[in-house]
Write a protein that binds this DNA or RNA. Structure first.
Lengths: 152, 152
DNA sequence: AAAAATTTGTTGCATAAGTAACGATAGACT
DNA sequence: AGTCTATCGTTACTTATGCAACAAATTTTT
């Protein structure tokens, strides 16, 4: 399987930043996904929704979308599933009845705290596997990309 | 919208490495996806397949899977579409007739070189927007994660 | 050499995701 | 008040994805 060197202007996929970031993100995410999948049969949108509500305590679907960058249909469906599971409750806003305020039930909080703990351990493992210098480089470059992507 | 500080063990989503990597990857990829989408109506699996064949010149579906980390059904369908578009041709291996060798047609090569060029410019823009020091940090940390994920 | 197991690539089916349209509500404009 | 526009969240429809089963070819085992 020879490299095609007809044209030296070529950019191998494995050197392409979009591809490399995707690979890294996907592999890391999947490794964590195993946790919430095996523990609660959750999907990624469900975990992110749970995490966002858990983090803010009281929040609306729209705010979850903004904070987690998920599509509103994803969030809507995740909320539905979490509600079925009795992990959250909705309260209609009395000043604007289009809006629903979401809060975790005790069960929901329990699951959130448990998974949050797993997430922190997972992250600690990654950082210590990387070592302090690589971890610092990762932090620096992620911040730089975040600023690039989302300039305040 | 107050932070929920009942429990200090909580890990905010925006500090979670899996989430941050995904955001970065998704945003960067989508910005590049605009290019191949608007130019040729291509999908991401199609672009990756085109890029992989273009890079190796002559390759099989299985090898594309291995090199690009895409699921074999994704690759199979991308090959089908690229073939319809007359961007690649298949040749059955004479020693093992399960295997098909894939090569780009002239049209396929043209599209590949064009998009490869766009990709390089895109990448150059990102690196220069990041600046040399952040770009170096990104390179370092991506390599570190790649080693972690895929230890040879 | 026949049977069993493996490999390559495709396809049927079920699930996930996004677009666009929607109902319900609220706000702005005349 | 009445109309027009915008917003919040849901849903119908279409497309994308992945698993599992598959056919065809090859390799291994007996």
């Amino acid at each position: 399987m020879d490299q095609n060197n007809i044209n030296e202007a070529v950019l191998p996929l494995e050197n392409f930043i979009a591809y490399r970031l995707n690979q890294a993100a996907e592999k890391v995410s999947q490794r964590f996904a195993i946790e919430y999948k095996k523990r609660h049969g959750m999907t990624r949108p469900e975990w992110r929704t749970l995490a966002t509500i858990g983090q803010f305590g009281n929040i609306t679907a729209k705010q979850i979308c903004q904070h987690s960058s998920m599509h509103k249909t994803k969030v809507s469906r995740a909320i539905f599933t979490l509600e079925q599971r009795r992990w959250l409750k909705r309260t209609v806003d009395q000043n604007d009845r289009r809006v629903e305020h979401l809060e975790l039930t005790l069960q929901g909080q329990k699951a959130y705290l448990e998974l949050s703990d797993v997430a922190r351990n997972f992250q600690d493992q990654i950082y210590s596997a990387l070592g302090p210098s690589n971890a610092a480089a990762l932090e620096t470059s992620l911040e730089a990309i975040e600023t690039l992507i989302d300039p305040q």
